[in-house]
Simulated scan of single mutants.
Amino acid sequence: MFGDFDDTERCPAHNSEAEVALGFASGKAALQSGRRSVPSLVMAGRDFAAVVRKRERIELATRHGS
């Protein structure tokens, strides 16, 4: 999201937080619109949750040196 001239990420934690906020805002907008596919929204939510869980496992493993 935000980076240096060579696309090196400067603030990974802030960028991740911004991406999650954007995802929630997009989801909220999708739910408030008159046109939505509930199965599609459920699938997207599951995909999002899976990515968050995977990243959390990687982060914990990195912190603990595993």
Rank of each mutant, 00 (worst) to 15 (best):
P12A: 04
K28W: 14
V38N: 00
E17V: 00
E19W: 08
V51F: 15
G65V: 03
R53P: 07
S26N: 13
L22V: 02
A21N: 07
L31G: 01
E56N: 09
M1I: 00
E56P: 00
N15F: 00
F5N: 06
R36L: 11
A44F: 08
S33A: 09
A50N: 11
T62R: 15
G34V: 06
K28Y: 11
R57H: 10
A13S: 10
A61P: 04
Q32K: 13
R55T: 07
R10V: 12
V20C: 06
E9D: 07
E17Y: 09
P12H: 05
D47Y: 07
F24K: 04
V52T: 06
A13H: 07
A13M: 03
S26M: 10
P39V: 03
S40T: 08
V42A: 01
S66C: 04
V51I: 15
R53M: 14
C11W: 15
S26R: 13
I58K: 10
R36N: 09
M1G: 08
R63S: 07
R53Y: 14
C11K: 09
G3D: 03
S33P: 03
S33C: 06
V52N: 06
E59Q: 09
Q32F: 11
C11Y: 15
G34M: 05
F24R: 05
G23K: 02
A49N: 14
R55M: 14
A29S: 09
R36H: 14
G3Q: 01
M1Q: 13
G3I: 03
R46A: 13
E19Q: 02
H14F: 12
G3C: 04
L60R: 13
A50M: 13
R46C: 14
V42E: 08
E19H: 06
T8G: 10
E17K: 00
P12E: 00
A29Y: 09
S66I: 05
H64N: 12
E59L: 13
A44N: 05
L31E: 03
S37C: 06
R46D: 15
D4G: 05
A61M: 11
D6T: 07
S37R: 05
R36T: 05
E56F: 10
A44R: 02
A44K: 00
D7E: 09
Q32H: 10
T8K: 08
K54C: 12
D4V: 00
F5L: 10
R63N: 07
R46H: 15
A25L: 10
E19A: 05
L41K: 01
A13F: 04
R10I: 13
A29G: 01
H64C: 12
N15V: 04
A44W: 04
A30T: 09
E9W: 06
F5S: 05
S40D: 13
S40R: 12
E19C: 00
R35K: 15
E56D: 14
N15H: 03
L31P: 02
F24N: 05
L31I: 00
V52G: 08
V52S: 06
R36Y: 15
A50D: 15
K54R: 15
A49L: 14
P39W: 03
Q32I: 07
M43R: 12
G23P: 02
G3F: 01
D7S: 06
S40Q: 13
C11H: 15
